[in-house]
Computed example of a mutant assay.
Amino acid sequence: MTDTPHPGRHGRLSVMCSAVDGVRIVALHGEIDHAVTDELSRALIPVDGATPPRTVVDLSDVTFMDSSGINVFIAAHHRVNESRGWLRIAAPQEPVLRVIQLIGLDAVIPCHATLEQARTA
């Protein structure tokens, strides 16, 4: 496993990227709103394109997400699918899970109760 902080930190969101068995783990901490969409996009959409991206986004420490976060997830999902990869969501807290379910994002991007389930599904 490798841990690397994502360049740049906004006061309300921090991003930690790691890899386990070829799966990128993007752990987010804080709040996801319009002020952090650029940083979130950079974290979710890989630049290198060498291999199909397999990414799990750990939302266990995200306390708030609005529609701008949903939009970033949908854009990232489309980009990753174009590269024949996948994007999964792991361990959202109840308030964030309600937003995900209300919007129907969990019907587009698989959402799992734990990081391990998301990584190995």
Rank of each mutant, 00 (worst) to 15 (best):
M1A: 05
Q117N: 10
P110F: 01
A90M: 02
L59C: 08
I103K: 09
H77V: 06
Q101A: 13
H77I: 06
E82N: 12
G22Q: 10
D66P: 01
L87I: 04
P46T: 15
A107T: 12
L105S: 02
I103Q: 14
V96D: 10
L105M: 05
V80F: 07
S60A: 03
E94Y: 07
R12T: 12
M16Y: 10
D3H: 07
R42Y: 11
P110L: 06
V26R: 04
D38N: 12
I70V: 11
R79I: 07
A90L: 02
V26K: 01
R24M: 12
G69A: 02
S18E: 14
L105N: 07
V96H: 04
V15A: 02
I103E: 09
R42Q: 14
H78F: 10
E116T: 07
V99S: 09
T51R: 03
D66Q: 02
V62W: 00
D48S: 09
C17F: 09
R79A: 15
L105D: 02
R98G: 02
I103Y: 11
L44I: 06
H112F: 10
A76L: 07
T4E: 15
H78Y: 11
T2C: 14
D66Y: 08
E31K: 05
R54S: 14
C17E: 15
M1W: 14
A43I: 00
